[in-house]
């Protein structure tokens, strides 16, 4: 992974990946019906918790260098991001299951408790 920390190629590749990902992301949901706007927004919200990866990398580095403060901050960041991820996916699933009536009814019952 050395190339990504290269002073020139690193930024070029990272920005390139960002641009390509953005264009693809833009194309992919063009035709979303308004019925799915809320669950889709919620699903994307969960995905934005992907920043947990950054927190974990920072955490691993801090763990190795034994810097306690950094480790604690990284762990807090990871936990917060995971709240975003887990909570986000769960509420999305909850919403989507309501649209999926066939085969979803039995699960619905169990959720109502």
């Amino acid at each position: 992974m050395e190339i990504l920390t290269h002073p020139v190629w690193g930024p070029v590749i990272l920005i390139g990946v960002f641009v390509v990902a953005s264009v693809l992301g833009y194309i992919i949901i063009r035709k979303v019906p308004s019925l799915l706007h809320t669950p889709l927004m919620s699903g994307m919200n969960a995905l934005s918790g992907v920043t947990v990866l950054g927190a974990l990398i920072a955490g691993v580095a801090a763990y190795k260098t034994q810097s306690v403060v950094v480790l604690i901050i990284a762990l807090v960041a990871a936990a917060l991001a995971m709240v975003n991820v887990a909570g986000g996916f769960f509420v999305t699933h909850k919403m989507l299951r309501m649209f999926d009536k066939k085969g979803g009814n039995d699960k619905k019952e169990e959720e109502k408790e």
């Binding site: 990946v17 390509v20 953005s22 992301g25 833009y26 934005s48 992907v50 990866l53 950054g54 920072a58």
Partner: peptide, 17 residues
């Protein structure tokens, strides 16, 4: 932090959002 996966997923969410 030079992490491609984070850049890619973040970019996808950012633009589709």
């Amino acid at each position: 932090i030079a992490n491609v996966l984070l850049v890619a997923v973040g970019g996808i969410v950012g633009s589709s959002g």
